[in-house]
Amino acid sequence: MPGTNEAAQAITAAAVDSFRDTPDPRLRELLQGLVRHLHGYVRELRPTIPEWEYAVDYLTAVGQKCDPTRQEFILLSDVLGVSMLVETLNEQGGGTESTVLGPFHMVESPQRASGDSIDLLGGDKPCVVSVRVTSADGTPLTGASVDVWQCTEDGFYDVQQPDVQPPGNGRGLFPTDDEGRVWFRTVIPSHYPIPTDGPVGVLLDASERHPYRPAHIHFIVEADGHRPLTTHIFVADGPYLDSDAVFAVKESLVVDFAQVDDEDKARQYRVTAPFRLAEIDIAIEPETPKDAR
């Protein structure tokens, strides 16, 4: 009768081999790699049967917490650092650094024109964000799509407060002009805790980790012939820049939201002085043959 280790290795080998006839070679590679690494984790840490049953129940609860405005599996991936790892490994190094999508890009952003406001609540701290989109070589990209979403001054997204915020507050889908530029009016977002009323919150409590994210604005930038980019800009000098709950802060993405007192410039941007201004460049990488895989 084979020993425990020999039997365990045989189970892994059989499970890996069961996917040998998968027609798509990349899918076969992913499935066999998943089996090898998952089995390796189990052999190393030897979970008890009650522990494994708890893990299955936990993942079931994560799925049950998902709905059209809440993606608990993305949140779990985020707090384990997996989302940020995938983003980092897929960067090619030629454009603006990427960050995580996050759990709140769950609704279609409303179409807006350059200069529109995404603040539908009339916040007290006016802010302007001016964006120039280029290819990695610096060529301005006309007609690029800039999808923006952010929380309020109080740290909530519209989908978290459907009785308080109108749908689409803090969101906008903007086209760039002939110079690759777009700007919009908004408010300075707050730092905020990720949702803790579900299984991810149980995990954070059990490990005594805080749930906070530093203040930031999300972007997805797309243009013909280029790889889509998911990124943030982080508000400089805010709390939690050094301990983001989802590991997404990169130094190159920390931006100074400078105070502007010039009344002429305020009129130009259709706000009142003083206001805060963030001016950023976002460079996206051309598509490669690998992207078509």
Rank of each mutant, 00 (worst) to 15 (best):
T4E: 15
G115D: 04
L30K: 13
Q165C: 15
E72H: 06
C127V: 10
D262Y: 05
P50S: 03
E287W: 00
L204A: 06
V221T: 02
A236T: 03
Q71K: 11
P193L: 03
A113Q: 14
D116G: 02
L203P: 06
I118H: 02
Y157D: 03
T96V: 00
D291G: 00
A144P: 00
E53S: 11
L27G: 08
S190I: 01
I188N: 09
P47E: 07
F156D: 13
A15D: 08
L27S: 10
P140N: 06
T176I: 02
R70D: 07
V82M: 12
A8Y: 11
G155W: 05
Y192R: 13
R36Q: 11
R112S: 10
E179D: 15
P228F: 00
S207C: 12
T22P: 04
P167R: 09
V254E: 05
P211L: 02
A223Q: 01
R112L: 14
A15Q: 13
I220T: 14
F184P: 03
D163G: 14
R276T: 08
L75Q: 12
R132W: 07
E279Y: 06
R43G: 07
P193N: 03
F257R: 02
F174V: 02
W52M: 15
E29S: 14
E153T: 14
K125P: 06
T88F: 00
S109G: 12
L80E: 05
H191W: 12
A273M: 06
S18C: 09
Y54R: 14
L173M: 10
V107I: 11
G115L: 03
K125T: 15
D17K: 14
V100E: 09
R293Q: 11
T60Y: 13
L80K: 07
E72G: 06
D237M: 06
H105W: 11
L76R: 06
S18R: 12
D137I: 01
T230D: 09
S145W: 08
Q64N: 11
E279M: 07
D242M: 03
T88D: 01
V159Y: 09
V131R: 05
A292F: 14
D242W: 04
V56T: 10
H232D: 13
H37E: 14
Q92W: 00
K65M: 10
Y212I: 06
V79P: 04
N5I: 11
S135D: 10
L89C: 04
A292P: 02
P68F: 08
A14M: 07
T60H: 13
H226R: 00
H37W: 10
P140V: 04
V82D: 06
I220Q: 09
V200S: 08
N169F: 05
P274Q: 05
Q92V: 00
L31A: 12
D178I: 07
A113L: 15
G225P: 01
R43F: 09
F104I: 07
D178T: 11
P68R: 08
C66Y: 04
